[in-house]
Design a protein around this nucleic acid. Structure first.
Lengths: 145, 145
DNA sequence: ATTTATGCAAATCGTTTGCAAACCT
DNA sequence: AGGTTTGCAAACGATTTGCATAAAT
């Protein structure tokens, strides 16, 4: 089942004429194993054989291929996770203001639907071509309380 | 009515033992005049008498005072706007992936309520103390199409 | 063999900070 | 005067890039 992911990543990379090299594969492995978005230092700590600059490049490629997603936080480092297409579900984030950690959550299907509907209507009115929405809850995580 | 804002800002600053100096006032004036979140270079362009480093400091203070809000974008510069307490309404953002511009929108009251309710329930379950939520629509603005 | 990816060190660029002068009270 | 704020230049730190080597096709 995680093999499936690699097949998918390889296909998506090929689509933009990129190879699925061992370094890129390692990055994907780390992201698959994580249950939350990771910073680049975290990824490097997990796989010290990877050079930091290469991880930046790998993630840029993986993002272009649509298999990784960058999350912007108020904290110093950006965070990355597998794209929703690979993990199979649309989700949102709980962002801790204190430690910068990010956890995932999903909205009940009905709430998500209602939200989507409202957002589609907004986009239409604003002549804005929306590709995605982001919903974050900002606050303090259980660890930091 | 914009005088009212200055009174409020002054009060909030005093609360954290900070003065409402001319530089800080100028920053607020620019933000009041803008109808969208601005980057620091944009603010400096508007008021060239302000030193960039001072604008960074001003906005840090204004943010601590709760009268300005920093918006994190995928683009290079952070953006700032008046805090919701001053502009009087909770709103969200349309973020253009192409040019990085950010426009405001509000959700219909009912949709916002439903969303809030769903989010409160999520927070409770995750033992997450939520102070705020952020909702962004990501896509391409009319100017960039 | 030729192209593409990677590591390392150096460069970049938004943001922060030290310090001396200007400002406020 | 005494403390705070500001401008300027220098420092910082996350991310990017140049270039020479290594890997992939």
């Amino acid at each position: 089942m995680t093999e499936e992911i690699h097949t998918l990543v390889a296909r998506q990379l090929k689509r933009i004429d990129q190879r699925y090299t061992s370094g890129r594969r390692e990055v994907i492995e780390v992201l698959v194993a994580a249950d939350r978005p990771l910073t680049i230092p975290e990824i490097v700590t997990d796989r010290p054989s990877l050079a930091t600059s290469s991880v930046y490049r790998h993630l840029a490629v993986l993002e272009r291929a649509g298999v990784a997603a960058r999350i912007v936080t108020t904290h110093e480092h950006a965070r990355y996770e597998l794209a929703e297409g690979l993990t199979a579900h649309h989700h949102h984030h709980l962002v801790c203001q204190s430690c910068g950690s990010v956890a995932d959550f999903t909205l009940p299907a009905k709430a998500e639907e209602q939200l989507d509907k409202a957002l589609r209507s907004i986009s239409r009115r604003a002549k804005f071509t929306s590709t995605d929405h982001r919903l974050d809850l900002v606050g303090v995580c259980p660890n930091c309380r």
